[in-house]
Amino acid sequence: MTTERLKVVFAEALGLPAEKITDDLAYNSIKEWDSTAHMILVAALEDTFDVMLDTDDIIDMSSVAKAREILKKYDIEC
């Protein structure tokens, strides 16, 4: 389940309504989540959760569910 906090960050960074942010929403599957938006999203996640993500994790962040899984590695539950 995509929780509220993660949803808000994704929605704001990608400029989408919160209801569009589902677990299976995938990178590059919609025009709003292209590579430029991806870097904006990464900055927003880093700001919100106060982490600096590894390059490999940025590249691996292929869906909302995957983002949550990656953040878990940094001890962030969201």
Binding site: M39, V42, A43, E46, D47, M52, T55
Partner: peptide, 10 residues
């Protein structure tokens, strides 16, 4: 530049 620009963007 990769890490630096990310920090600068923030």
């Amino acid at each position: 530049s990769q890490y630096g620009s990310r920090l600068m963007q923030r």
